[in-house]
Each structure stands twice: as structure tokens, then as C-alpha cells.
Amino acid sequence: MKTTPAHNERVRKMKFYSVFPHYVTKVEKKGRTKEELFTVIEWLTGFNEEDLNKLIDEKVTFETFFERATLNPNAHLIKGVVCGYRVEEIDNPLTKKARYLDKLIDELARGKKLESILRKEK
């Protein structure tokens, strides 16, 4: 499924600091912890809690967030549908990374075990 240029632009300009509280609410409402959320984000991006807090304070966009991230080499193992898009078919690199993050957070909120969320090559 192809994303539109307008969709990709919206993702690029989104502010990480404005979305992050929604991630926290989503996982905590389902009985997961903020620490588990930090674990998932760190696995995908390499950012620890301190790094994330700095990025939030800087009010970075998703574009800047993912430019500074070191994407996990196993991120390509993230598959499935999120926000109406099959992540493995998204052609825009930034949008794909943002949807990887969304997918991991969805899995955490749905109660999937951390060992399964933090993918490893088989």
C-alpha cells in the first residue's frame, strides 16, 4: 500500500513530544508500564529514557527523531497492519519507521510479551 505525499509530509512534521503522551496513555490504560514503553522505544531507536526526555524537551519532529535514531537491525522483522497500512509495504523510509514504532506500541498495549515485541533473527 502506497502512502500519499501529503501523508508522508504529515508524518515528517509531526512533533514527537506531542505524540509521546498518547503512547504513554495507550500502554498504561492497558496495564503496561512507562518503563516497558521506554524499553520498546530503546530497542527500535537506541534512545534511552534520558535521550527521549531531551528530544521531548527539544520538541523535535518525527523527521529529526528518526534522523538521530540508530534503527535496530532487526526492525525489518516488524510486520503487520497499523493505521491502515501494511508496514512492510510502506515505501517512504520515514513513514515506515514511524509505523514500526506505532506497531510496537500497539503490540505492547495489546499485551504481547516483550520478548516477542523485541524481535530477533531466527
Rank of each mutant, 00 (worst) to 15 (best):
Y17S: 15
L118S: 00
D102W: 14
L94T: 01
F38G: 10
V40D: 09
F66D: 14
H7T: 13
L77F: 02
F66M: 10
M1G: 14
F20G: 08
A6W: 09
V40A: 05
R10T: 13
T70L: 07
E58Q: 15
F66S: 09
K103Q: 01
L55H: 11
V87Q: 00
L52F: 04
N72V: 07
D102E: 15
T70Q: 12
M14N: 15
N53G: 07
R86Q: 13
E42Q: 14
K103Y: 00
D51E: 03
V24L: 14
K54P: 08
E89M: 06
Y17R: 15
G84K: 02
R86L: 12
N8T: 07
Y23N: 10
T39W: 11
F16V: 05
E58M: 11
A75W: 07
I117M: 01
H76A: 11
R86D: 15
N53H: 10
I56C: 02
K30W: 05
G84F: 02
S116T: 13
L94W: 00
R68M: 03
V81W: 07
K120I: 08
V82G: 13
E89T: 13
N74W: 10
V40R: 06
K34R: 15
L37N: 02
C83E: 15
G31K: 01
D106S: 04
G46C: 02
E88H: 05
E35N: 15
N92H: 08
R32M: 04
R12V: 07
K15V: 12
T95A: 14
T4F: 02
R99G: 05
N48D: 10
V82P: 10
H7E: 14
M14Q: 15
D91W: 06
L94Q: 00
E67I: 10
K59I: 03
M14G: 13
G84W: 04
K79W: 06
M14C: 11
T45P: 06
R32P: 03
E67G: 08
L104P: 01
R68I: 02
S18W: 12
L44Q: 10
E121P: 07
F65M: 06
F20W: 14
E36T: 01
L44T: 05
R119H: 00
R32W: 04
H22V: 09
T3A: 11
D102C: 10
K59H: 09
K15H: 09
Y17G: 11
N72E: 14
A109W: 00
K122N: 13
E115G: 01
T64Q: 14
K13D: 11
L108C: 00
T25E: 15
F16N: 02
V60D: 07
I56A: 01
L55M: 12
E50M: 08
V24D: 12
